[in-house]
Design a protein around this nucleic acid. Sequence first.
DNA 1: CAAATATACCTAAAATTCTTATGTATAAAA
DNA 2: TTTTATACATAAGAATTTTAGGTATATTTG
Lengths: 111, 111
Amino acid sequence: MSNSKLYKGSLTTIILRLLSEHPKMYGYEITQKVKELTDGELKITEGALYPALHKLEADGLLDVEVRRVDNRLRKYYKLTEKGTKETASKLNELERYIETMQVLLNPKWTT
Amino acid sequence: MSNSKLYKGSLTTIILRLLSEHPKMYGYEITQKVKELTDGELKITEGALYPALHKLEADGLLDVEVRRVDNRLRKYYKLTEKGTKETASKLNELERYIETMQVLLNPKWTT
DNA sequence: CAAATATACCTAAAATTCTTATGTATAAAA
DNA sequence: TTTTATACATAAGAATTTTAGGTATATTTG
């Protein structure tokens, strides 16, 4: 995913966030979009992505729709209602995480 | 550590950051300090902390000094020179992680 | 005073998440 | 024609954390 271990735990949040902006996306598209948006800083590996998508689907957060495009298979994922709610929750978590880490990063505690 | 999975991977960074501000700290003190600084948002569990400290010591990033205070044992950890360098590196990683995630969080991509 | 809580360390099994290494298949580019 | 890109998938292993214990002393509380 990246040389930094910090991304551990944030893959689900990233997937949900992307799907909250795009009506539907397929796996390979997600890997390319993330690479593009982060200027290559973050590369989602397939070994991490596909199991994560399957889990989100199993948990009822995503719906899947298989299509054949240019004689190649694509699995389009989109948020369910439950998934939309979970996305909001995950984004709050991320914001709180960032705030918390910034406290530790830039301490007011000269104590 | 917290109900949020996002903290996965950030424990080492947190420990190093605290030790870059405090000349020496012992394990229990670290758990209390983090709880205090984050208003209880983040609670470091001992099962995560102690193995992490041992690994940092084994990697030569921390030195340890055992002391008996009030007839109770304390293991004081402090940064080695190597640990100080690694701390700077980890803090850069954290800043980049936050920047990257904020791009994904607040997209300029209305596309 | 007894019991509970706080202080202070530790480990080991299990769960979680990710990396690394594969595998299959078609289309396009070099 | 071989490599790269597109598109899916899984499985073994690594790394980190949770959960659930364990030991021991000091202090607080009922």
